[in-house]
């Protein structure tokens, strides 16, 4: 984010060691990974292992984010965000910094990955994201600042991960951090209260962003502008029904959107294979199949009668 702060920014040179005041862990800084309004993330080495270290001169930011990371790691298994390794302070001269060390997630940025590997991956990654969001929401959290910049795709197995949990907010509170393009409040399509539909709006905008890599500015705003942008874009058009539902807050749970995206994917397959739709429709519509069956009987009787007719004609000819 190109935010210009008045507070003097800090730079930690590569190769420098920082040592925690409380836990005495030493981290050797290797390179800067990213810089935001609330701190800098470095790649560092700790006990021969690669870790990411976020450093800030505002200890509140660090405390807030580590609280979220701790809450997320309480439920083991699915890890949407990085796992937390250490929280500490670093004092150098008169300056005081707070930092936390976390798992270093190595991968490619979301949009870059799709650009390189093709749009076929978009659906897959979004499906992965939606199931992760479902479990995050079930645990009482909303991701908040969901955008491609915060998503990393790890190679083999290809898995989407979130690297910045700074915007994660407890359900019911007001969203802590957001980015305009992915914020429903900005588009005039809802409040900034943390609820699952807030994240699902952002997911829809991530799909839009995949087709509009440069994004687009708000003009009239509202659903009219977004719908227009969706309809007029090749490839994106086909997502229209799902996107509209997500953008207008019709999905209350991530799994509803996920299911729609899944069945929608299957529909696409049907279109390509015209021999299948009849078969696929049968189980979903039992009364119709009964009619079909009686029609089948009539057909059999009809054929039987015709054959009998020809046969009797043949017999008649033989006799004659």
């Amino acid at each position: 984010m190109a935010m210009n702060t008045l507070k003097s920014p800090f730079n930690i040179p590569n190769g420098r060691c920082i040592e925690g005041k409380w836990h005495k862990n030493r981290y050797k800084i290797q390179k800067e990974l990213g810089r935001g309004a609330n701190g800098v993330v470095y790649l560092a080495e700790w006990k021969g292992r690669k870790v990411a270290v976020k450093i800030s001169d505002n200890h509140l930011t660090i405390t807030s984010e580590t609280n979220v990371l701790k809450a997320l790691s309480k439920a083991q298994g699915i890890a949407l965000g990085p796992s937390l390794l250490d929280v500490d302070d670093w004092e150098i001269g008169s300056r005081k910094f707070s930092f936390y060390a976390m798992e270093y997630i190595e991968g490619e940025h979301f949009l870059q990955f799709i650009k390189r590997k093709g749009m076929v991956w978009l659906d897959i990654l979004i499906l992965q994201l939606l199931s992760d969001l479902q479990s995050l929401h079930e645990r009482g959290w909303i991701f908040g600042d969901l955008k491609p910049d915060n998503l990393i795709v790890t190679p083999l197995p290809v898995k989407i991960r979130c690297i910045d949990v700074g915007g994660t907010t407890a359900i019911g509170r007001s969203i802590k951090e957001f980015t305009e393009f992915f914020d429903r409040g900005y588009w005039g399509l809802g409040s900034r209260r943390a609820e699952p539909s807030y994240d699902l709006f952002s997911v829809a905008m991530i799909i839009v962003n995949a087709y509009y890599p440069d994004r687009f500015p708000k003009k009239i705003g509202g659903i009219q502008q977004l719908q227009k942008m969706i309809v007029q874009k090749n490839g994106l058009h086909k997502y229209e029904p799902i996107l509209l539902r997500a953008l207008t807050g019709k999905y209350h749970q991530a799994k509803e959107m996920r299911l729609d995206l899944l069945t929608f994917g299957q529909k696409k397959i049907k279109k390509n294979q015209p021999s299948r739709p009849l078969k696929a429709k049968v189980p979903s519509n039992p009364p119709q199949s009964k009619q079909k069956r009686t029609a089948g009987w009539l057909e059999t009787i009809f054929i039987f009668l015709i054959i009998s007719l020809f046969y009797s004609l043949y017999i008649f000819g033989q006799i004659g």
Binding site: W22, H59, L60, T63, S64, T66, N67, K70, V87, D88, D89, K96, S98, R173, S174
Partner: peptide
């Protein structure tokens, strides 16, 4: 002050700040 507490305790105090914030 909050900064003088070890990071673990600080987290608990911050919960209070966040709650108040809302």
């Amino acid at each position: 002050e909050m900064e003088d507490l070890p990071p673990e305790k600080r987290g608990e105090v911050f919960e209070v700040v966040e709650e108040l914030n809302d």
